[in-house]
């Protein structure tokens, strides 16, 4: 399978990764050969086989939605990371 340069650039865009020209070429050849390899799954008949998304053996694990005490220092440290302005998290502009 031959992934094109444009496809790699599109995947990089979806992945939010800035890639150099060399990286685009490297991942183009590497991903092509890895995808070639995993394509061997096509030879397996899987009609009527259920898919497995997880193996915990558990379903619908619920708990009460209640507020619990947590170490105050830890909570503050976790919630106050990043650049702040007037109590809000500051990010780069979204619209041009």
């Amino acid at each position: 399978m031959n992934i094109t340069k444009e496809e790699i650039q599109h995947i990089a865009e979806l992945s939010r990764l800035d890639l150099s020209v060399e990286e685009v070429e490297k991942y183009r050849t590497q991903l092509s050969s890895i995808l070639d390899y995993v394509k061997m799954l096509d030879e397996v008949k899987t009609d009527n086989v259920e898919l497995t998304a997880q193996v915990s053996g558990l379903m619908d694990v619920f708990r009460e939605d209640e507020v619990k005490e947590w170490d105050k220092q830890e909570t503050e440290a976790a919630l106050n990371l990043g650049e702040r302005e007037n109590g809000s998290l500051k990010v780069k502009r979204v619209l041009q």
């Binding site: 995993v38 799954l41 096509d42 086989v49 259920e50 898919l51 497995t52």
Partner: peptide
């Protein structure tokens, strides 16, 4: 496809 073959491996 991988998820279904995963079932067969299990």
């Amino acid at each position: 496809k991988a998820q279904t073959v995963r079932t067969l491996i299990i």
